[in-house]
Amino acid sequence: MKLVFEKVVLPLSDFALELDLSLQTETLGLFGPSGSGKTSLLDLIAGVRHPAKGRIVVDDVVLTDRVARVSVPSRERGIGYVSQEGALFPHFSVEENLRYGGQRRGFAVISFDRVVSVLNLQTLLQRRIVNLSGGEKQRVALGRALLSSPRLLLLDEPLSSLDAALREETMELLEQVRNEFRVPWIYVSHVPWELQRLCTEILVLDHGRVVRQGPVEKIFTVSSEPVWRLRQDD
C-alpha cells in the first residue's frame, strides 16, 4: 500500500491535523495519546471527513484533492472501516450485517464462507447484535469490512474494549486475517505491543502532527509487557 498525504489540513476543535508525508507499507500502525488525531486521520482516508486543504492518494488513486476539487465518495473508495465501537447495525442479524457491503467490482473477491470460517462466526450468524459480547462484535465488524473487498482496512483500536484474555485471542485472529486475506491495514492503538505484533511501520501523532515515523523496531523498545518506551531519535 502506498499512502500519500500532501499538505493535508483538517481543523479540529482544539488544533488542526496537519499531514505531509508519503510512505509504503502493508501494515501501518498509528500511535499517540487520546485526542491526538488518530481517528480523524482514518476518517479522512475513509471519506467520512473532508480536509480543508490538501491531497490524499492511496495506491495511486486520488481520493481527495482540494485544489482539483476531487473527493471520491465514501462508497466508492474501497476502504473497510472497523470503528472503535464496532458500529454494527443493531436492527440486523449478524449475517445481515456481514452481507450489507457485498463484493465490489474491480476488487479482489473475498469469500463469505472463508471469512465466516477464519473469524469463527458460524454459530453467530442468526444472532441479534444486542446478544453479542464485545469480542464477538469486533469479529463481526472485521468480517463485514473484509467482505466489502476493501483495498485497505482501517482498524480503530479494535481491542480497546476487550479484557486481557480476549485481547490476546483477538490479536491472534488479526494475525491470521493478515496472513490469510493480505489486505493492507492501518491499525490505530495506544498500546505499543499490539502495534509491535501487528504492524511494520509506525506513525506517532501528537496534537495533530506526526512527531515520529519509521519501522516499528525503531519507534518502540518493548522489553516485557507492560514495560515500554519510545526510542529516542538516533
Binding site: R75, R77, G80, S83
Partner: peptide
Amino acid sequence: NPRLEQIARTLGAG
C-alpha cells in the same frame, strides 16, 4: 449514531 450511516457508506451504500 452517525457512525452507523458513515460505516454503511464505506461499505458501498449510496
